[in-house]
Every structure is written in structure tokens, then in C-alpha cells.
Design a protein around this nucleic acid. Structure first.
Length: 322
DNA sequence: CGTTCCTCCTGCTAGC
DNA sequence: TGCTAGCAGGAGGAAC
């Protein structure tokens, strides 16, 4: 499952093997991969053809290629990006054009080198088709300052812990102002981006916090330490994943497992906690699974169910309504 | 408005 | 052996 480290590995591969090349032909296979491109797959293919990739960027789990458009008379040159989200199972592969087409190849971009030679494909392959491609205009990035640009549809995605625009004090303030479970907050890409189910569990284990602790009941230093752990664990995973792709194959499948052996929480139900030896537990959470240590990460005592019974006679938590 | 819940998809695995 | 049910989960948008 590609989260920040896996997506960054892909971005680096794209920076090495796609930036500087031009798109000479595009085949969008099926409609689903372009479902976020509202003008449809044919429009996506038309507008991609003839562009040159000038940069490969990322925020959180989103990737985008900045495009320069050679088409004459185009009104907005240099301000378009091809956005790629890998979803659950997406891959970006750079391969020889004569390589056998993958079963789930949904988009094929034929590339041309600056010297005019051809023969490489950039392919978007996605088994479960949660991912997709679309074009978008670049706008000023309000998180990063006037010089930085971001696709308009990603304006609500917060900076991730590995970029310079990331302001942890601000994230902590916004988290503390929320009234929700801490794991939900970690997964909320508008608060801090890049964290998925795996790294959320890893960060919570390192911080010795149960994911159902409430954000507004945690102190700012605790929240900050948790975010430090999230940054650390993703940085360590990136350090291990960055070595596993070779020249023509932009490895990007998060399931390839290079970091798997280093996980302390995710997927370790019944196995001993690497701190205290207690068997790790698995609990249902948001229609998926959470893994934690029953001793190091005790469940919160107050199980307030906000959805079913918001009634609080004391009104302690009700600060809004005067 | 803030927060929670549902849905999209397909390959693999457990269980009968 | 072959079938089915369950599971994996990112993110948008509906629902509350």
C-alpha cells in the first residue's frame, strides 16, 4: 500500500527517468483511470500529447508531473500538471516500448528523449483501480509561499512531515482543536499528509498511544512527539526503499515489502511486542484493522461515543454553546 | 460547520 | 477440489 515513502520512491524514479522527456503518444485504456479527469479520457490523451515533463513533485501520497506544452496558441503554457494517485495498488513503470503490456495497464505514454530517440513507455498499472490520472492547473501553494505551485485540486492537502513547508507546531494546534480519535487525525490528509494505516500504527506504537485516544485530551508535547515518530518511521522506510529500484524500472509497488521486516506494529497480531513481549492485538477500526500492544498502548478509559450519545449533563466538553 | 460513514475495485486466502 | 466470503484500504462525498 503506497504511503509517503513508497510514493517518494516513485517520484525519484520519475525524476530520474521521465523528467526531460516528451510525450509523443498516449493510450488511455478504459475510462476508470481517468475518472477524475472530468473532460474524459480522450481529452486527457489529447492534452498530454506533445507536452514535455519538466518536474516530478509530490505532496503526501499525491504525485504530479509539471508539463510544458508545445502546442501553438495554447492559452496557459507551463501551468499544467499530470496528477497521479496510486491508490491501493498503482504503479508507474518505465519500460521498453516492446515490453509485454501488463494486464492492468490503464495508461501508456510513449516518450521521446531530448535527442529525438524513442522507445520508452511510461505506464500506469493498477490492479485495484483505486488510483488514477488527471490534468489540473497549477495555483499558488498557500502552505509553501508565493513561489511554490500546486495543482488546484490538491490545495486542501496539508504538507507532509518530510517537506520544508511542513509546520509541526501548526499541525499540533489544529489537532488539539479537534475532537476526534488520534488515529483518525493522523489519517486526515488535510491535517498532515502522507500517513496511511501502516505508518499510523507504527507511529502510535512508538509513541505508546492507543489510536482511539482523543486529540483534545492529549497534550501538545505528546502530539508533537507522535508526529516526530511519524516523520521518523517514514524517513527510515524511505531510506530502505530508495535502494530497491533499478535503471529502467521505477519500482513503486508498496507491497514489495522491503520495509516489512522493520514494522513493529502493523500486521503483527499475536506476535510479541518488541518492547514488552506481550502479544500484539488487532482491533477493527474504520472498516479496517489496527495493530497495537495491549500493555504499551492501553485503551483510553473514557469511551465517549459522540455519535450515539452526545448528551453531557455536566457540559464540561461543551465549550462552544454559551 | 465538524465529524463519521460508505463506496469504489480485484486478487488472494481461509474455510467449508 | 471448487466454491464463497472476507479482507486489504485511500479518499471523496454523502450523511448526520
Amino acid at each position: 500500500m503506497p504511503e509517503l515513502p513508497e510514493v517518494e520512491v516513485v517520484r525519484r524514479g520519475l525524476a530520474d527517468h521521465v523528467v526531460g522527456r516528451s510525450v509523443v503518444a498516449v493510450d488511455i485504456r478504459g475510462h476508470r483511470v481517468a475518472r477524475r479527469h472530468l473532460a474524459g479520457p480522450l481529452d486527457l490523451a489529447d492534452r498530454l500529447t506533445g507536452t514535455t515533463v519538466v518536474a516530478a513533485r509530490r505532496r503526501g501520497k499525491y504525485l504530479w508531473l509539471e508539463l510544458a506544452d508545445h502546442a501553438a496558441g495554447h492559452g496557459d503554457p507551463d501551468e499544467t500538471a499530470l496528477i497521479a494517485h496510486l491508490g491501493m495498488s498503482g504503479q508507474m513503470l518505465v519500460e521498453p516500448a516492446d515490453a509485454p503490456l501488463e494486464k492492468h495497464a490503464h495508461a501508456v505514454l510513449a516518450l521521446r528523449d531530448p535527442d529525438g530517440s524513442e522507445g520508452l513507455h511510461l505506464r500506469f498499472v493498477d490492479q485495484r483501480t483505486f488510483g488514477g490520472l488527471y490534468l489540473d492547473d497549477l495555483v499558488t501553494d498557500t502552505f509553501a509561499g508565493a513561489d511554490a505551485l500546486i495543482p488546484s485540486t490538491l490545495a486542501h492537502i496539508a504538507p507532509d512531515p518530510l517537506e520544508t513547508a511542513y509546520d509541526q507546531a501548526s499541525v499540533v494546534r489544529r489537532m488539539k482543536a479537534r475532537h476526534t480519535q488520534i488515529k483518525r487525525a493522523l489519517l486526515d490528509q488535510s491535517l498532515v499528509s502522507g500517513i496511511g494505516n501502516i505508518y499510523a500504527d507504527e507511529a502510535l506504537w512508538r509513541a505508546r498511544l492507543h489510536g482511539e485516544r482523543m486529540t483534545d485530551a492529549l497534550t501538545k508535547p505528546v502530539l508533537s512527539a507522535l508526529l516526530d515518530h511519524a516523520r521518523d518511521v517514514m524517513g527510515e522506510a524511505l531510506g530502505k526503499g530508495g535502494t530497491s529500484f533499478d535503471a529502467l524500472y521505477v519500482n513503486v509497488n508498496g507491497a514489495s515489502g522491503y520495509f516489512e521486516r522493520s514494522l513493529n506494529a502493523y500486521g503483527r497480531e499475536g506476535e510479541p511486542c518488541r518492547r514488552c513481549g506481550r502479544p500484539m492485538r488487532r482491533e477493527a477500526f474504520m472498516n479496517r484493522s489496527s495493530f497495537s500492544c495491549p500493555r504499551c498502548q492501553p485503551r483510553p478509559r473514557t469511551v465517549r461515543r459522540t455519535a450515539t450519545s452526545p448528551a453531557t449533563s455536566s457540559g464540561v466538553r461543551r465549550s462552544v454553546r454559551g
